[in-house]
C-alpha cells in the first residue's frame, strides 16, 4: 500500500500533525520537576514536611512512558501500513546511529573523569609531580593508589582535621572490586558479568541471522535467550551492589573510587536495563504481534545495535574499572 505518485520516487511520509510531542513534554517536565523536588527535600528540606514531590514524579514518569509507548506504536503502525519509504527508513537508521554516538560521548565524560583522577589528580594530591609537589602541606600522609582505599580526608585524620572547610565526609572501601580482593576467581562477579554480556551479544547476533533467514522460530528463541541473559546480568549487578554496600564498605561516599565505580557501572547498568527492555519489547512484538520479516525488522535491529553498544561499553568498564 505504498503511496506511489506519478513520478519515479517514493513519497517521503511527513505526518500531518501530532499530539505526541506536546504530551511527551508534559510528562517529561513533570517527572523532572518531581525528581528535582525529591532531591531537594532530601538535602535541603524539612523531612517531616508534607510534599507532593513523589506523586508528581511518578505521575510524570508514567505519563511520559505511556506517551513513548504510544509514540512507538504509532511509528510501528505507520510502518505496517506501508507508509515508510526506503528513504524514511534510512532516516531512522541515521537517527539511531547518531543517538548511540551521543550515548558514547556521555560515557566518554565519565571515562574521562576516571582517567583524569587516576592519572593526574590522584598523584597530585599525594604530592607527586611538578604540579602537585606542595600538596603534602594539605594532605600529609596521603598515598595515592588505585583503587583508592584511603581518601585524603581519612589520611589526615577525618573531616574535622582536614585543612579546608568541611564539606562532607568521605569514607573509603576496605575491599575493592578488583580481582585481587576476590577469594576465588569463580567468586569474582565481574568475570561472570563479562561472560554473560559477551554471550548475549552473540545470541543477539544469532537472533539477527535468524530473522534475516526469515526463520522466526530461531529469532524468537535466541532473542529470548538474550533477554534472559540481560536479566541475569542485572541480577548479578544488583548482587554486586549489595556486596559492595554490605560487605566491602564501597559506597557512593567512598571517595572518588566509589564515585567513579558507581557512576560508571550504574549508568551502564541503567543502559542494560533500557536495552533489555527494548529487546523484550521486540520479543513481545514478534511473539504476540507477529511483527518482523526478513526484510523489515528495523525495531529489532535498532535495539540490537543498542545492545552491542552497551556490551562494548562493558568491555571498557571491565578493563578500566575492574582489572587495571
Amino acid at each position: 500500500m505504498t503511496t506511489q505518485t506519478s513520478t519515479e520516487y517514493e513519497k517521503y511520509y511527513v505526518p500531518e500533525k501530532s499530539r505526541l510531542a506536546v504530551c511527551a513534554t508534559i510528562g517529561l517536565m513533570l517527572s523532572i520537576f518531581g525528581a528535582a523536588s525529591i532531591m531537594n527535600d532530601m538535602t535541603f528540606g524539612d523531612p517531616d514536611e508534607q510534599t507532593y514531590s513523589w506523586p508528581i514524579f511518578l505521575f510524570g514518569l508514567f505519563f511520559f512512558m505511556a506517551v513513548l509507548f504510544g509514540w512507538f506504536r504509532t511509528a510501528i503502525k505507520e510502518n505496517i501500513a506501508g507508509m515508510n519509504s526506503a528513504q524514511l527508513k534510512k532516516s531512522y537508521v541515521l537517527g539511531m546511529f547518531w543517538f548511540i554516538f551521543s550515548e558514547v560521548m556521555f560515557f566518554f565524560a565519565f571515562f574521562g573523569a576516571l582517567f583524569y583522577v587516576r592519572m593526574l589528580a590522584g598523584p597530585w594530591l599525594a604530592g607527586e609531580g611538578e604540579a602537585g609537589r606542595m600538596n603534602g602541606l594539605l594532605w600529609d600522609g596521603f598515598e595515592f593508589a588505585w583503587p583508592m582505599m584511603q581518601t585524603p580526608q581519612e589520611a589526615v585524620g577525618g573531616a574535622a582535621a582536614q585543612p579546608l572547610a568541611n564539606n562532607g565526609s568521605y569514607t573509603s572501601a576496605h575491599t575493592s572490586m578488583a580481582f585481587r580482593d576476590a577469594e576465588f576467581w569463580w567468586k569474582w562477579l565481574p568475570l561472570w558479568n563479562t561472560l554473560i554480556l559477551l554471550t548475549s551479544s552473540l545470541t543477539c547476533h544469532f537472533a539477527h541471522t535468524g530473522i534475516l533467514e526469515g526463520d522466526k522460530k530461531k529469532f524468537n528463541k535466541w532473542l529470548t535467550v538474550t533477554v534472559a541473559l540481560g536479566i541475569v546480568f542485572l541480577g548479578l549487578q544488583a548482587l554486586e551492589y549489595y556486596e559492595a554496600y554490605a560487605h566491602f564498605g564501597l559506597t557512593l561516599n567512598a571517595g572518588i573510587y566509589g564515585s567513579t565505580f558507581f557512576m560508571l557501572t550504574g549508568f551502564h547498568g541503567f543502559h542494560v536495563l533500557m536495552g533489555m527492555t527494548l529487546l523484550l519489547i521486540q520479543l513481545l512484538r514478534s511473539v504476540m504481534g507477529g511483527h518482523f520479516t526478513a526484510d523489515d525488522h528495523f525495531g529489532f535491529e535498532a535495539s540490537s545495535w543498542y545492545w552491542h553498544f552497551v556490551d562494548v561499553v562493558w568491555v571498557f568498564l571491565f578493563l578500566f574499572v575492574y582489572i587495571l
Partner: peptide, 21 residues
C-alpha cells in the same frame, strides 16, 4: 550529572577531600 551526584548523593568528583578535583 556529576554535580548532581556530588550535591545529593555524597560522591566526591569535585572534592579533593574525597580524592576528586
Amino acid at each position: 550529572t556529576m554535580m548532581l551526584m556530588d550535591i545529593h548523593f555524597g560522591t566526591s568528583f569535585f572534592s579533593a577531600a574525597g580524592g576528586g578535583d
